[in-house]
């Protein structure tokens, strides 16, 4: 009987499988409890957290797209204090695996303050620093579209972090490799990519944008090829581990993302249209590996360029 090995390792953190629900599509896990046992997941990347509580943008902040969706939620979250005191301990009651804290800010000082608040939480295994939210002004993506700003946030966060730091990158740039290199040189332990692609929809009857915020982030299977390309480019240029994400929907997508160079994979929009997406992908993974003659996921090598 062929036994498949699903384990992967991120900067010394052992994951029993590479599947991680992506930040912003999983809340703090509670909403998925009626559907499955969270302990089957490799890790959980929890909702993006800022220094202060945020409501986010006005509604409508969701729109349908071909092969995906737009969101302009705008980092709604209860703030670092409530996440540390309430959300993470509550998650710990039902889930004992690694937690990835996802951190956002509107200034270097806010990123640092938020990291200081969460880095010491015993549940937190990795810090994922979001410099790529497309839905907030003055911050978020502004730090992720300029190599110098990305490096500055990376250095500032690294000074106070006691856990591996993964910078989450935006695809809304001309050269993602330049941003990735800047983060790596500034001391990032790893990278997460990609965040959503900036897009819009128009209501033809009303002749107005569908989203109250006009533009929003596009996610879902439609962005998968873009995500693969960027992961492949980045992993060809830096030596630190990359968590790949963007439209991953099936077990075959997971393997394809790892062949692009990712060490682990996040599942985002798929969770929202099918709350059982992660367990279903996990169940299908060994069969797909066997078909391809893959015994251990950690042995998958990045495909070369043609």
């Amino acid at each position: 009987m062929g036994m498949t090995d699903l384990r992967v390792n991120l900067s010394g953190v052992e994951l029993k499988n590479p599947l991680i629900p992506a930040s912003g599509t999983f809340g703090f896990g509670r909403e998925f409890l009626p559907y499955y046992d969270l302990n089957l997941l490799g890790a959980i990347s929890v909702k993006g957290t800022t220094g202060e509580p945020r409501f986010g943008n006005p509604t409508p902040r969701i729109a349908e797209c071909p092969a995906g969706m737009l969101n302009s939620v705008g980092l709604q979250n209860p703030g670092a204090q409530a996440v540390a005191k309430e959300e993470l301990p509550a998650l710990r009651q039902v889930y004992t695996g690694p937690i990835i804290a996802n951190i956002s800010g509107f200034s270097e000082e806010e990123y640092v303050r938020c990291v200081e608040r969460l880095t010491g939480q015993e549940q937190v295994a990795i810090l994922e620093i979001n410099i790529s939210c497309p839905n907030v002004r003055h911050g978020g993506m502004a730090f992720g579209t300029d190599p110098e700003a990305a490096a500055r946030i990376t250095r500032a966060v690294k000074r106070v972090a006691t856990r591996p730091v993964y910078m989450k990158l935006s695809p809304n740039v001309t050269d993602i490799v330049a941003i990735a290199r800047a983060c790596a040189e500034a001391g990032a332990d790893g990278l997460s990519l990609i965040n959503t692609l900036l897009g819009m929809r128009i209501d033809l009857q009303r002749r107005r944008p569908v989203l109250a915020n006009t533009y929003g982030g596009y996610s879902g299977p439609g962005i998968f090829p873009v995500a693969l390309r960027m992961v492949h480019q980045v992993t060809g240029a830096v030596d630190i581990p990359v968590i790949g994400m963007g439209g991953v929907t099936t077990a075959r997508d997971v393997i394809e993302m790892m062949m692009a160079g990712a060490k682990a994979v996040q599942i985002g929009a798929a969770n929202l249209v099918n709350p059982m997406a992660c367990p279903e992908i996990l169940a299908a993974l060994p069969g797909e590996m066997e078909k391809l003659g893959i015994r251990a996921l950690s042995e998958i090598e990045r495909v070369p360029v043609n």
Partner: peptide, 21 residues
Amino acid sequence: ERMGCGFGACMGCSVQTAAGS
């Protein structure tokens, strides 16, 4: 309200009320 998931995960349909969001 326009919804993403419908089960509380995406925060797409939040409204502000006197008792919080």
